[in-house]
Design a protein around this nucleic acid. Sequence first.
DNA 1: TAAAAGATAGTAATTGGTTACTATCTTTTA
DNA 2: TAAAAGATAGTAACCAATTACTATCTTTTA
Lengths: 200, 200
Amino acid sequence: MKTSSKNLRADERREVTVETVVELAGEQNPSEITTAAIAKRMGVTQGALFRHFPNKEAILSSVMEWVSKRLLARIDKAISKNPSPMAALEAMFMAHVEFVCKHPGVPRMLFGELQGAKDSAPKRLVQLMIEGYSIKLKALLDEGINSGELDPELDTQSAALLFIGTIQGLVMQSLLAGDVKKMRKDAPGVFAIYQRGIRG
Amino acid sequence: MKTSSKNLRADERREVTVETVVELAGEQNPSEITTAAIAKRMGVTQGALFRHFPNKEAILSSVMEWVSKRLLARIDKAISKNPSPMAALEAMFMAHVEFVCKHPGVPRMLFGELQGAKDSAPKRLVQLMIEGYSIKLKALLDEGINSGELDPELDTQSAALLFIGTIQGLVMQSLLAGDVKKMRKDAPGVFAIYQRGIRG
DNA sequence: TAAAAGATAGTAATTGGTTACTATCTTTTA
DNA sequence: TAAAAGATAGTAACCAATTACTATCTTTTA
């Protein structure tokens, strides 16, 4: 049980900081999140953040690691529960959508980091995560082709790109509507078209 | 021909300003573009910008109007050249990709504006533009269903969402690769899958 | 076992630097 | 030569980061 005292231990404080940034990113442009805003939401002074992180970039790096770990774990779990590649693809899609629904700030942060001119530490972490994601995705697509579930002449590179882009499109639509839960509702219809485009 | 003089007329200066912002957005995170950076790129002092725009938001609004006008004009041209709805859809897709290739900062700015918490003037312009875009898109999809080119049971709402998301996916991929021209190369393969997903 | 000693977490105030924006003076050009 | 365009030199507000200090928790030891 957490103590009811005000002071958290260093690792707990770092965890809370990361979760707070994810939360704030769901409410505003991630690149406009200030250390003052993070601290205020946490009920701590701004300077206190720098007792646990050397600088702001280190906070963002921690956030990216947090995202990588949680998202990829969900994906793995969804895949392992489904023996059929096509079923696994759908489960992976829905798991991703569910994750983004729960943490709407995440895709905004990823996209924002990729936009940065200089290749910062957090940007490299994002690239690494998407790479891992793509590998899992392409493995599933290849499996599906071999099992006859997918079009044998499918361009897996394009199919992987479209898979990720589809989710990005759902995010954009939810931003337009100002309603995060719209994603969950739209996801099945959109995946149905995607499925029709790749199946054998 | 432009005069060789140093001083531009007010409307010319405004035009150059808008183009400069679009240019800078292709090189860095749009929300980190400062008025100082814009002025420097134009070869003008920072204060000079405020002779032609009341504030920074007005600059961004002008950029959004510039984008709306140019993009929608391209789309209309692409559509009108193709009698068949499916051919028109493909031409619309490629025209959009070509536009984004020429102005990589545009999708980043749109996405960034939508992320803003408060609904600013530029944000409303973005929403308006996407609305106009979606109307054209849905009209084409309905046409395609009626002509038998598209799946009669197609969910046009989902199909429109996926169309836009597909382009967003191409943008993200080009950011990852750090190569804008990658989009032009990947576009046909991705559209082929989309086409397969919606055709009758 | 309780008080001293040390380690850890957080505060309050302040730093130098950057931001959008403005007031005033100078140059260009029609 | 008058009006428009731009230069110069500011402003207050905000940013990340640092400082000197205090509160709180943990370990040691008499």
